[in-house]
Amino acid sequence: MLEDGHRRSLDRVSQRRTDHDHAAGSETELEWLRAIARQDRTAFEQLYRSYHGPLSRFLARFTARRDLIEEMVNETLWVVWRTAGSFRGESKVRTWIIGIAYRCLMKQLRDHPAEPTYGAGDRDQEALHEVAPDESEARQAELRDWLRHGMALLPDEQRMTIELAYYLGQSCEEIAAIMNCAVGTVKARMFHARLRLRNTLPALGGDAVPQSHSAQA
């Protein structure tokens, strides 16, 4: 039988996903998209405000330049505005929009390979820690720093797979749709990313990982 700690952890994650799905309001987003297809600007603004924060924070993990982040967010939502009528419900609205953002990001990474720095957007958060240091926040900052080094060593596709799964909470099948590849390819990328993290993170301070995080998630 599974240990209580692990079972509670699994239950908590499952519950969080369920809550998240409800909170995300898939039906509401679908209604917004249908209205946007009819050129409804009120619905477009609602969807824009709903996605601006999550997309900005996701993209900030790959570049520190706020102008580029806004450009990518607006490019993504401009495509949504122009093509909302072509959405046929083959995926969730959220997955469809993340897929567009992913393609904007990949173009950005390809066109300006020297500019993005993995986790550069964390500077904002680090500035907050300097203002109000706190033990749990310090542990989080340490863990994030530890991970940033490990993630920076991953190839783009593997890093993106991990981010889509762990930061945006996408399933294996949803990531395949976003990255326009086979489910098997996602599994392979995840497999190799995990191996690399396993091999590189201990050398970069894995022993110092806060143990309090081991039972989380």
Partner: peptide
């Protein structure tokens, strides 16, 4: 491995940056 991946998940789940207020960017779009 489950515990290791849980630590990675917990670390990546931390909000990385503060997003700007969306109003001005929406205006430009």
């Amino acid at each position: 491995e489950y515990a290791f991946q849980s630590r990675v998940h917990a670390g990546l789940g931390v909000e990385a940056a503060v997003a700007d207020e969306p109003g001005p960017a929406f205006g430009r779009l």
